[in-house]
Nucleic acid binder design. Structure first.
Length: 877
RNA sequence: GAGUCAUUAGCUCAGUUGGUUUAGAGCGCUGCCUUGACAGGGCAGAGGUCACUGGUUCGAGUCCAGUAUGACUCACCA
């Protein structure tokens, strides 16, 4: 088959992806093999592929493809989550552009629009994953709001309610005024922002005195119901029990005393707004203060605020400020940096708000999940994530799961008067209600208006994607899954909760391993995000460097759990790697086989050597994968393919230009190349599949993707070591050619000073022939001392030299040898010190001592060789 | 405020129970090389007292303590 000189990734990649899909290679059904299952961390249905996804999904694909080759029944379930806030915001925006307001629609009408949107635009990201080469079982694609998943969610809710693990309560929550919904703590991001500290005078009732408070939010004074001071603050001791007048609204409020107040901060006097601050709320409860809610759900001032009604909270701040200035009550405004919480989804400043919500009593659920990780029943990679997990689990808070949205599973709670009935359907709730209210009409039962947090769907994912709530055949076969691959940033939001759910409903962990990936950061160490706009276009990268190139780039720099600083250069390196493989393929396939040619003896050595190396590689990969050292494993493969195979092995067996190759060498080389393809396939599926299609024979698998992972065979360390010495001689000679401007292919006569190594090189015809070929030598001889006008180098412990016809810079050569001598002397000094220490010789393991002795004797040989060279050079002065 | 982790070549990082010729890789850098699989390339080279100070040990980049610097997580912040 003619092989094109150019490797065009985009064409070849789409060809193979289609081919795999057509043959159904990604699909899995339960059978008698062992399962290896993975569930995708469901990306947001509104999402587009970004760097984090690429890293995360490449890793999953690597694990899945490798498991498949190793004979497991590999199943990778893809899907998306419904992302209630993000999606609802998108749909609302789209409707607004069409002139439709959400408030004009009924719930059912809105949901119809939302589903239409989802069908049309949702899940683009799954299509993008195909470009990456993801071998997901697409027939199993799940969505957190589809029928099966929703049924599970409702069932879970009802079950928890019946177990008394759910409750409804009025609490101070994080309110997102843009999305007009509550947020859980995990969805609020606190960051330091520049604000102001306003010093405001509150007039004392019935007097001319003032009390000055400091606040970052002057607009909330509309809702003040007290001013608090510390009991031991001498500045305010005479004010205890008195009243002040809140400016603008002229409300008379008490001065309360509480040691919560920090004397050092601000003025030491604190305004108290129980309805709009968590701490103030607690103070209010303690001191029985009035709770005045001055904000509407959208963050504007409510009727209760009395002034600036309908104005947005930030506009109101300015208006209050102006008003205070006018009244002369604003003492000063100082710049102040403080933490501000923003909504993860909408970036709106979060407003603390009192509200009635549904909560999960997490403390009742955590124990088995905590124990599982502590005992490594669920194993974390890297291990250090256990600390983070433990800390959160031990200090766990209740989980607020209701959201004031329409897009999501509606809370299955039905109200009548003061009663609530929780059931999987209105009919069931009605049956319950009828017991207490026999005359009730079903229409009088009102379902909760809120929906459930998206994470309340996601935490069931490993169970629900296999229809686990119906205990399906798939579930029994695939659960628990083998490994979860996700970013450490959602360890609480998702990972911990999934483990909790796994034990709660199935009495078993949802996954055996959790591999936490690092965050993809840019060159300035910033997390890549849409809002910063510092994320490269993922598909653009694939177009530019090929999916294989990008996969290489992502993986080659992502140590287990460590963050990775993304650089396009890494993808470029990956693309270059595919090119290298392609050209190696062209070389090997270009060799014409001559059936009459006998195999050169040096090829036998090369083949034996590389076979051992391959086995060492297979063994090393197993070790690395056990520890999820995927990046290291890839670097090892890269060196193995590029340096060992292309730069050394192929050069060793390559026939001289224009000559044919013998049958045996060609066959073995193809075999070794096939092994490379199989080993590399999980990382770079496309180039390996393409290469395989050219290399395959009657006896090998039809496709690389389904090729059997090679079984570990013998590793011969001796041949590997001896080859290292030969390579060192070859490199040493190349260096000499470089230094003395001798052309790479000019024939030379090489001499070795007699010792056991050089003698072996001379006596073993395979080694000698290999040396002659690789070094372009005329001859290789053994002598007992340097000859006239020699230039020498040391390889291993032995000395080699060639004779020059031209003059050399004697002084420069002496300097160089002396530098090397000094290094060697330092080296043996250390070794000698060790060996002189009796306790070392007596206590250290025998092998270690023996090795030190070898180091010493080799070092001494090198020194002797160097000293002789220096002497010889000096005599030439 | 509590905790976790880090500090190794110009840059980004490996270095897995302490011992493998006084530390490895990629990128970058320097020199040489182009009719031959590959310039998306080949060959070779330079570059590190492993943050600092002590300690444990026959032996420390690796273990312990302290110091410095940095990063992150959780909580709070009028």
């Amino acid at each position: 088959m003619e092989i094109s000189s150019q490797y065009i990734a985009s064409e070849i990649e789409s060809k193979w992806y289609e081919y795999w899909m057509e043959r159904g290679y990604f699909h899995s059904e339960p059978d008698n093999r062992n399962p290896f299952s993975v569930v995708i961390p469901p990306p947001n249905v509104t999402g587009v592929l970004h760097m984090g996804h690429m890293l995360n999904n490449t890793i999953q694909d690597i694990l899945i493809r490798r498991a498949r080759q190793k004979g497991f029944n590999a199943c990778w379930v893809p899907g998306t989550d419904h992302a209630s806030i993000a999606t609802e915001a998108k749909v609302v925006k789209m409707l607004r552009e069409d002139g439709i307001k959400k408030s004009d629609l009924s719930r059912e009408e809105f949901l119809k629009h939302a589903w239409n949107w989802k069908e049309k635009y949702g899940g683009i990201i799954l299509e993008q994953l195909k470009k990456l080469g993801a071998s997901c079982d697409w027939e199993r694609t799940a969505f957190t709001m589809d029928a099966t998943r929703s049924a599970g969610v409702i069932q879970a809710f009802v079950d928890l309610y019946n177990k008394d693990v759910l409750y409804r309560g009025k609490r101070m929550v994080n309110w997102d005024p843009n999305a007009q919904t509550v947020l859980s703590n995990e969805e609020v991001i606190y960051k330091e922002e520049q604000g102001n500290l306003y010093h405001i005078q509150y007039k004392l009732e019935g007097g001319s005195d003032f009390l000055t408070i400091a606040t970052t939010r002057p607009e909330t004074l509309l809702g003040d119901s007290a001013v608090a001071v510390h009991p031991d603050d001498p500045r305010y001791s005479e004010f205890h029990g008195k009243y002040v007048i809140v400016p603008i609204v002229n409300r008379k409020v008490p001065i309360i005393v509480d040691d919560y107040v920090d004397i050092e901060f601000g003025t030491g006097a604190l305004k108290v707004t129980p309805a709009h601050d968590v701490n103030d709320y607690d103070l209010g409860k303690k001191h029985n203060l009035e709770v005045i809610e001055i904000f509407n759900d959208d963050g504007s001032i409510s009727e209760a605020g009395q002034f600036f009604i309908g104005e947005d909270r930030f506009k109101a701040r300015k208006l209050v400020k102006a008003q205070l200035e006018e009244e002369g009550l604003l003492i000063k405004v100082e710049p102040y940096r403080h933490n501000v919480g923003r909504s993860e989804r909408t970036n709106a400043v979060v407003e603390p708000k009192l509200s009635l919500q549904w909560y999960v009593s997490m403390k009742k659920l955590v124990d088995p999940a905590l124990e599982a990780v502590e005992s490594d029943e669920v194993e974390f990679f890297p291990k250090k994530m256990k600390n983070t997990y433990r800390h959160w689990m031990v200090n766990i808070r209740d989980w607020c799961i209701s959201r004031q949205l329409w897009w999501g599973q509606r809370v299955p709670a039905y109200y009548y008067k003061e009663d609530v009935f929780v059931a999987t359907s209105p009919e069931e709730a009605f049956q319950q209600a009828k017991i207490k209210y026999p005359d009730l009409d079903i229409n009088e039962l009102k379902q909760d208006e809120d929906v459930l947090d998206t994470w309340f769907s996601s935490w069931l994912w490993p169970i629900s994607v296999f229809d686990g709530f119906n205990n399906s055949k798939d579930f029994q076969y695939y659960y628990p899954t083998s490994v979860l691959v996700t970013g450490w940033d959602i360890i609480f939001l998702w990972v911990a909760r999934m483990i909790i759910a796994g034990y709660e409903w199935k009495g078993k962990f949802p996954f055996k391993h959790v591999y936490f990936t690092g965050m993809v950061r840019d060159q300035k160490r910033r997390k890549m995000s849409k809002s910063l706009g510092n994320s490269p276009d993922a598909l653009g990268l694939i177009k530019q460097f090929g999916a294989d190139g990008v996969r290489f780039g992502m993986l080659s720099c992502s140590p287990a759990g460590g963050d990775l600083l993304f650089d396009e250069k890494l993808c470029e390196q990956g693309r270059n790697f595919t090119n290298k493989i392609w050209n190696a393929l062209r070389l090997v396939q270009g060799w014409e086989v001559d059936p009459n040619k006998t195999q050169p003896i040096e090829n036998e050595l090369a083949i034996d050597w590389f076979t051992s190396l391959s086995n060492r590689m297979i063994s090393g990969l197993d070790d690395k994968f056990k520890e999820y050292r995927l990046s290291e494993a890839l670097i090892d493969l890269y060196t193995y393919v590029w340096t060992d195979f292309c730069s050394w092995y192929l050069e060793m067996v390559k026939p001289p230009y224009g000559e044919a190759i013998d049958v045996y060498t060609k066959e073995k080389t193809v075999e070794l190349f096939q092994c490379i393809c199989t080993l590399l396939h999980p990382y770079m599926p496309f180039i390996t599949e393409e290469a395989w299609s050219h290399l395959k024979t009657e006896t090998t698998s039809e496709d690389c993707m389904l090729s059997q992972y090679p079984v570990l065979d013998v590793i011969d360390p001796q041949i590997i070591n001896e080859m290292e010495t030969i390579k060192e001689v070859i490199s040493g000679l190349r260096d000499l050619r470089n230094k003395h401007q001798i052309k790479p292919k000019e024939k030379l006569n090489l001499f070795g000073i007699i010792d056991n190594v050089t003698t072996d090189l001379y006596d073993d015809p395979k080694k000698k022939e290999l040396l002659l070929k690789m070094s372009h030598l005329e001859s290789f001889e053994i002598v007992d001392q340097e000859l006239e006008n020699a230039v020498s180098f040391i390889a291993g412990k032995s000395k080699f030299f060639i004779q020059l016809t031209q003059e050399i810079d004697v002084e420069e050569a002496i300097r160089e040898k002396e530098k090397e001598l000094k290094y060697q002397q330092g080296f043996i000094a250390g070794v000698q010190k060790k060996l002189a220490n009796e306790r070392f010789v007596n206590n250290a393991p025998e092998a270690v001592v023996a090795n030190e002795k070898k180091k010493l004797s080799d070092g001494l040989s090198r020194i002797k060789n160097l000293e002789q060279s220096i002497e010889e050079l000096k005599s030439r002065r």
